[in-house]
Amino acid sequence: MKKFRGNYSHTLDEKGRFILPSRFKEVLLESEAASVMMTRMDRCIFVYTIEEWEKIEDRITSLPTTSETMRRFRRIFIGGAFECPFDKQGRILIPVPLREYAQLDRDIVLVGEARYFEIWSKTLWENENLKMECDLAQPEARAEIAALGI
């Protein structure tokens, strides 16, 4: 199974569409669906194949809903998801509520996360990179990463 890897700078057109990088398109072509699922978290958009989304949705909906936090997470993560088709040119339209949430204007960055990819505004992605540099200055963070064998 191919995975989403790397990061790519792109631009949104006036309708809020972007062109899939060819490496991401290869992953999506393994899927029989002509669409992806998009949802929101961490001020970015998470994009899943339909098959991967169904696995996540099943895991989330099988959890008990006694926790107010989990109910809220489920409500926002699943309830705020959109099925988004891609066209013959490999473009995907990002729905307005997701563009507003992730503060997407024109310049975006697509970030591969193996089983899914994220869409960030260029500015928020640059801020995320700066936060990681600050995290790496902390001994606890360095130890957590070192435990991965990296």
Rank of each mutant, 00 (worst) to 15 (best):
D107F: 11
S9W: 12
F82S: 07
S31G: 11
R106G: 08
V27C: 07
N7M: 13
F77V: 11
F24K: 00
D42A: 03
D13H: 09
E68C: 01
L20K: 06
E83I: 03
T39Y: 00
Y116T: 05
W120P: 02
L20I: 12
L104W: 08
L20D: 10
F117G: 01
G6A: 12
T49F: 10
E126T: 08
R23E: 10
R23W: 02
V109S: 04
F24P: 00
V47D: 07
L93K: 05
P139H: 09
P21F: 10
M1I: 13
T69P: 00
K55P: 02
A146T: 14
I19F: 05
L110N: 04
F73L: 10
F82M: 04
L98C: 05
K55E: 15
A141C: 11
L104S: 08
M41N: 10
G149V: 15
H10Q: 13
T66H: 08
L130M: 08
A81K: 13
D107K: 14
R75I: 04
L63Q: 15
E14H: 11
L124F: 00
F73S: 05
I94S: 01
I94G: 01
L130D: 06
R91F: 11
F4Y: 13
E100Q: 13
L63D: 10
E133C: 03
G80T: 02
E30A: 04
Y101R: 01
I78P: 06
Y48F: 12
T66C: 04
R5M: 14
K3S: 15
R91K: 10
T65Q: 07
E140Q: 11
I76R: 01
